[in-house]
Design a protein around this nucleic acid. Structure first.
Lengths: 206, 206
DNA sequence: ACTTTTGTTAACCATTTGGTTAAACCATGA
DNA sequence: TCATGGTTTAACCAAATGGTTAACAAAAGT
């Protein structure tokens, strides 16, 4: 009976992820999730005691995947600049795979900052070697040009993430000009991010 | 009776703005808005027929302010690069004044794209001279270097807006390193955006 | 003064929604 | 085969919530 168990549980999680992503914690209805999963609503409560817990499962999963994917800059066998390039690649790849993820995170975190902070602490245990620390070390050792690492990181994440976060807005803004923000643009986006990294991390002035 | 009228109406709108900003359309409760405004719940329905209309008022107001503020790039008496610089300044200034605005827009637009598109059409009537068109013309006339204008605009908006959108996330990410994203950073942010504009819009290779 | 219009409220209603219960279902091992 | 225990469901419940009503208060018009 464990197979069936596993099955419905993951089915529920998938449905919940879909609905929560679209509607957020408040907007999502347990009935919608049940319908999406093709099961009775009571079964949701059988597997996950209540809405809060079900949401935590989805939310925690999303965050976990997010951080796991960003855990690459720890590889000290390659140069910092290469690591940053890879970091941005994977970041954009991740967001391409889960386009609603960033919107979802923004939504939920902004309306429930406490819960988020708690969750983060639980998931980011081993990441002493964060990208920020890598940048700081790189600047101190002179491997990359001197600059404000927080601003650089913010700029980098902005260039990568905002296109996904704001694609609905951007489409609306662009549509007057007959231009759309489509998936084709991702390659170009990647290129422009790389260009930015080269611009900020190259020691050309030696 | 017009004074009193005006008063409560704006009081309600203010309260509604506050609550809607924080909770979104679904999360906001009419009772919360009434409490915040210090009036009876029924009065909300007296001034604004229902939740939807009240929300529309707030939402429309936010969008209107947003677009009005971005309507500056039409001034052809100054160079395109200068206009873009001013554009980014005002954009960041606007977001500094209304920090939750972008999160609010992201939230609502992502979960109700149709409504947004309709609203936008009503508000962006005279903006044939959009920033995108300015960029395209500038590239054609050779005033600014040849590049993909959509990517440039997206990059620009990313650098400006994402720090506000993602400040909750970013704080959580940074707090391990003991660094915070505070208001002090806005000046630095502005500088980095200007640097980016100079990088992308200067015809240094002549 | 008194009638009419506008503003405001308490009490109420219908629906939605998260959550519970008790019974049915069904695979498995004795 | 039938007892057992995990799984699933229909029916139900209580609270929350958007919205309405009817009565009252306060201006404004006459």
């Amino acid at each position: 009976m464990k197979l069936k168990d596993q099955n419905t549980e993951s089915t529920i999680l998938e449905a919940a992820r879909f609905i929560f992503m679209e509607k957020g914690l408040y907007g999502a209805r347990m009935q919608d999730i049940a319908n999406k999963a093709g099961i009775n609503k009571a079964l949701l409560h059988y597997y996950f005691r209540n809405k809060e817990r079900l949401f935590d499962e989805v939310f925690g999963g999303a965050l976990s995947r997010y951080f796991k994917n960003m855990d690459i800059i720890s590889d000290e066998s390659i140069s910092i600049k290469e690591r940053i390039l890879t970091y941005s690649d994977r970041f954009i790849k991740f967001l391409s795979d889960y386009p609603q993820m960033s919107i979802f995170l923004i939504k939920e975190i902004s309306s429930n900052e406490e819960l988020f902070h708690a969750k983060v602490k639980g998931l980011k245990k081993n990441e002493k070697q964060s990208i920020l620390n890598v940048l700081i070390e790189g600047i101190q050792s002179g491997e990359i040009p001197d600059q404000d690492p927080v601003i650089f990181l913010m700029n980098l994440q902005s260039l990568c993430a905002y296109p996904f976060v704001a694609s609905p807005i951007f489409n609306a803004i662009c549509q007057n000009s007959g231009i759309q923000w489509t998936d084709e643009q991702h390659a170009k986006l990647l290129y422009s991010v790389h260009e930015f990294i080269h611009f900020k991390l190259s020691k050309s002035d030696l």
